[in-house]
Each structure stands twice: as structure tokens, then as C-alpha cells.
């Protein structure tokens, strides 16, 4: 499912992973200076539109993924209203004798939207970038040591296996414990065989990698060259335009 999205034939998927990562950091940086409602709202809408049109990610899936962040964002509104640093002057209405001021709602919505922007840009990155191309780009362009990059790849392969194993371990222990045990303890204890298994698996994989001649050095040939292409020029141009219009122009 996720892989299918990450390797889909669409514009964002073809953009170099390092550029997408850079754009993510840039947006995060500029968001620091934003306190109003309209800027984050515009960025959010644009981001969602970009993921939908340029990344061909189904809108429904995107909104479902953003839903938990929306709830998280709403908690800011609630916090600002109930525990404001300074209660605003424009009281709109009362909830159980508690005044609700426009200024506090505005701050809350702004903070909440900011969280949503962070979430949506992260999704833009995660949903359109395959782990392999990310690691390859980082190794080739950002000089990440191959030992770390390929180690991350191996670890990434383990995740689904570990989840499967955890289900089996819990069942196995339930049978031993005659099905009657406090849940928290059970989870904690299942971690021991899970970790023991993970360590052993990691050890074996490390041996297999070394036996295949992997020495962690940068001296290796490159079958796939992660070079910058025309798509990347378009992406960069579009991104600079976006930053200028949304963040820089209003400042000047």
C-alpha cells in the first residue's frame, strides 16, 4: 500500500528525496515566524493540493491520515481557551460561565494549524519517497556513511517481521500463563523474547552483509545514480515561488 504510493508515477515521486527533505525543513523554519490564521491555512491547503495533484495520493486517504493531527490541533484551541496566558477582550460567548474570547481562539487555531502544516509536509515527504531512494540519495549526495544507510535499510526490513513475531509471542505466553495475566505486565515481558530474537536476527543479517563483501566504506560502485534532473529544477523553482509568495512578500 505505502510502497505502491511511494513508487507511483507522479511528479512528487520523481523529485530528488534530498530536495523534498530540504523543503520540509524550510517550511518548518518559516512557520516559526507565523502567528496568524491565514498563512498556515493557505500552506495547509496548498500542501494537500500538491500531494493530491502532484503526488496522485487519494484525497480520502490523505484526510484520514490527517484526522488524528486535526484532533491534536484542536487540543491547542481548547488549551488556549481554557487556560489562556491572558484572556482576550472580545468575549464571544460563555461555556459554563467561562468566557470564550476571540483572541484566544485565534491563537489556538493558529497553533493547531501549524501542527497540521508540519503533519501535512511530513506526509508529503513520507507518502512520495521510497526508503531505498532516500537512503541512496543521502549516501550519494549528503555523504551519509554507507554503513549507517544500509544498516537503516536492513532495520527497515525487520519492522513487519517484528510485528508478526510479537503477535505470536503474546499468544504463546498467553497459553503458558493459562490466559490469565495483567495486560501491562504481559506486554513488558513479551519484550524480552522479542528483543532476544531481534538481536539474533540483526547479528545474522550483519554476518550475511559482511559475507557479501559489505565493508561500510564509500568505495563502492553505483548502479543507480541519484542525480538531480529536470523535475528537480521545476520543483525547486515552484518551491521558491511558494515560499516567496506565502512567507517573504507579506514580510516586506
Amino acid at each position: 500500500m505505502l510502497e505502491e504510493l511511494q513508487t507511483r508515477d507522479a511528479f512528487l515521486q520523481r523529485v530528488h528525496p534530498t530536495l523534498k527533505l530540504l523543503s520540509l525543513f524550510t517550511v518548518f523554519f518559516f512557520m516559526i515566524f507565523i502567528y496568524d490564521i491565514w498563512h498556515p491555512l493557505a500552506v495547509l491547503v496548498l500542501t494537500i493540493a500538491a500531494i493530491f495533484f502532484l503526488g496522485k495520493v487519494p484525497l480520502k486517504l490523505l484526510l484520514i491520515l490527517l484526522l488524528p493531527f486535526a484532533l491534536f490541533g484542536f487540543s491547542f484551541v481548547w488549551l488556549q481557551v481554557v487556560f489562556p496566558e491572558e484572556r482576550g477582550a472580545t468575549v464571544l460567548f460563555y461555556v459554563f460561565h467561562m468566557p470564550v474570547a476571540l483572541e484566544n481562539i485565534q491563537t489556538g487555531v493558529s497553533l493547531g494549524l501549524r501542527a497540521m502544516v508540519f503533519a501535512s509536509w511530513s506526509l508529503l515527504f513520507v507518502l512520495t519517497t521510497s526508503p531505498v531512494s532516500l537512503v541512496m540519495s543521502l549516501i550519494q549526495k549528503w555523504h551519509m556513511p554507507p554503513s549507517i544507510g544500509y544498516g537503516m535499510m536492513a532495520a527497515y526490513r525487520f519492522l513487519p517481521q517484528l510485528r508478526k513475531e510479537l503477535v505470536i509471542i503474546r499468544r504463546a505466553r498467553q497459553i503458558r500463563g493459562m490466559g490469565s495475566k495483567p495486560r501491562m505486565r504481559e506486554w513488558k515481558e513479551a519484550g524480552v523474547p522479542l528483543m532476544a530474537g531481534a538481536v539474533r536476527k540483526a547479528e545474522r543479517t550483519a554476518l550475511a552483509m559482511e559475507s557479501k563483501g559489505f565493508d561500510g566504506s564509500r568505495k563502492r560502485t553505483r548502479y543507480v545514480q541519484m542525480n538531480y534532473k529536470k523535475t528537480d529544477v521545476w520543483f525547486t523553482a515552484g518551491f521558491i515561488l511558494f515560499i516567496t509568495v506565502v512567507f517573504l512578500l507579506p514580510l516586506s
Binding site: V132, M153, A154, R157, Q161, K201, K212, G213, F214, D215
Partner: peptide, 25 residues
Amino acid sequence: PDTQFCMPTVREELVFTLENLRVPA
């Protein structure tokens, strides 16, 4: 069979192996 590979697909694993040995691209 589960712990001998570090890449997700067959092609990537073979490429990984050959790149390690500095086989020309």
C-alpha cells in the same frame, strides 16, 4: 532465509551485493 538480505527487493539485493565488490556499474 529471513535474515540474509538487507534490501527490500531481489534486484536491489543483487545490486547491493555487486556494488559491494566494486563491480563496474
